[in-house]
Design a protein around this nucleic acid. Structure first.
Lengths: 338, 338
DNA sequence: CTGAAAGCGCTAACAA
DNA sequence: TTGTTAGCGCTTTCAG
């Protein structure tokens, strides 16, 4: 079943069939119908491989995330896949485990060209410099806490503000010994550092000192790290009465430790997270969190990437901010639902 | 940068370059070296699109799951992606939301042929019949609780046995009023029905009657359903003292309701889940569960699919059972860790 | 509005 | 062991 077969049956040239199949204009209604009929009759479906080669495009975009089983990413992924499909694009998924070399390879068109037309990338191990050194012809949209260097788009929320708001929420509750879990004071920890900055800003605004010894670093933002850091904090002479966790997973880990030690959340220690993943809504207690508009992030990322793919000349790299909001639940507010 | 350019520079034919690039035999070490040098010098990378067309293969497999943000699937996906990459295959991900029509389309090569060479499929809305009616030329491996009709491979654990073991564990604790949450007594609910069968078998073996009014159906296996079903159960005159949940998410939802009502887990009600997702390990309390060997499932599925793709004549459809085990945690055992 | 025909870059049968 | 060459099936320029 090829274009030719259809053309023959319909008594037109393959050019015309192609026009019809691709919904181009310039086809008489009459011939369009005849061709359509032939297509249906033969059960013709275009060969994507041939089309791709001829077009020089794969019709696929790659989404690169550090970890697939991180709820935040899988929730985001859903939105991206949906948005891409609407535009006729398929999504290739890649997981880097934060491996720097792997990440670098992917933004250089992977091991082979043309497998994907563009990349939505959530870098973890990669420096700003490595991002700048990438294949300049590969359309790129970056998620998370980077800053665009003008050659790619960047979609994220305002992390400093969000973190400040999270911290202020804890201060508003009358808590005085605030801890922060998740700092990463090294080159590839930009994400974390922005949150730490917001944490500091909140203190500054209130004229309060930051308890430096309560700012704890973690290699990743997962449950294990949260649980460990919390245990560490509780072993102090003067443990915190509130904790700002840099992800909901960290918060869940921290709560796990707290409850395990017989402490009450939020009465003894209030806990706030970040990301608003579904787990946090059904945990005990449900977790107060910063909720980024994931749907908007996904849609915007796809939209901008396809725009780049479609443009002959690369559009300027934009900083795109999705909205976020503070969602107060029982891990700080202390109410209890049925 | 095409094969020809390389051939020219190396002073050989494009055929030879192709041989070298693809690691075929029959190339003198000497020419191999010369070609390799030319490749490096020109920074040549093969055009996958052209290769795909010529080979008639896309080098991609599709993985189709109902929901991407279900931890069980995203954990499985990780393993699949890894296993596929090792074999030089890329993974396309598709989410059906359990939509029957969408599922049917995908096992008929989607809307276009050749986009993927085979499918690993976790059906939700599709009947056995629909599976049988699929495009017979599309290599297929099915995950979950179906039975192979001999034309595809099926990878899963022994659900009846696992469910029986889960139930027996509750009975061993001395519980007498066992509930089950997750039954789906309709055509596409085969997965659920197997678990219900195991639940019954355990009772039968002990000569105990099943409390039919405590077997609750849920449309999906997620937190909301679990929370709702549990609330429903607690409103009974004679509420259960133990609950077998058909997924860990359901268990987490159920626990959420229990704790919200001021009941203790496991003292008042013991809860067991299914899937062993990471969330269950860090919840309060951690969830006892049936743990399928996900890594094995992923590897086996990929292995079998690639074998099918590579075979001229379709190998017989196999039933492949991955191992599982009962993991006892605090939601039934009542210990409490730090 | 439609037809003819030249590729897209690679693979692999056939020859040498 | 290597070269020649005919496709793979579609898109698209250029005529008409």
């Amino acid at each position: 079943m090829t274009l030719r077969d259809v053309a023959e049956l319909a008594g037109v040239s393959s050019r015309t069939v192609s026009n019809v199949v691709n919904g181009y204009a310039n086809v008489t209604e009459r011939t369009r119908l005849r061709v359509q009929q032939a297509v249906d009759q033969l059960g013709y479906r275009p060969n994507v491989l041939a089309r791709n080669l001829a077009r020089g495009r794969s019709g696929q975009i790659a989404v690169v995330v550090p970890y697939l089983d991180t709820p935040y990413f899988s929730e985001l992924l859903q939105g991206i896949i949906r948005a891409a499909r609407v535009q006729g694009y398929n999504v290739l998924i890649d997981q880097t485990d934060g491996d720097r070399e792997h990440e670098r390879m992917l933004i250089n068109h992977g091991s082979s060209r043309l497998l994907f037309d563009g990349v939505i990338f959530s870098p973890l191990g990669l420096s700003q410099q490595a991002l700048a050194d990438r294949d300049p012809d590969l359309p790129l949209v970056v998620l998370g806490e980077r800053v665009s260097d003008g050659t790619f788009d960047h979609v994220g929320i305002d992390d400093v503000t969000a973190s400040r708001q999270a911290t202020e929420h804890l201060l508003d509750l009358g808590r005085t010994r605030l801890a922060a879990i998740g700092d990463q004071p090294y080159e590839t920890g930009e994400a974390a550092q922005l949150r730490t900055r917001g944490f500091r800003e909140a203190h500054e605004r209130r004229g309060l000192p930051v308890r430096e010894d309560l700012v704890i670093g973690t290699p990743r933002f997962n449950r294990v790290d949260g649980a460990g850091a919390m245990a560490h904090l509780l072993d102090r002479d003067d443990p915190p009465d509130a904790v700002f966790c840099y992800s909901d997973l960290v918060a869940l880990g921290a709560i796990h430790t707290l409850v395990g030690r017989g402490l009450r959340v939020p009465e003894d220690v209030a806990v706030i997270g970040y990301d608003d993943i579904e787990d946090g809504r059904y945990s005990n207690p449900p977790v107060t969190t910063i909720s980024p508009d994931k749907e908007m992030i996904a849609t915007t990322a796809v939209e901008r990437l396809l725009l780049r793919i479609g443009s002959a000349t690369a559009p300027p790299g934009l900083e795109l901010r999705a909205p976020h909001r503070l969602v107060v639940r029982e891990s700080t507010a202390g109410r209890r639902a049925g």
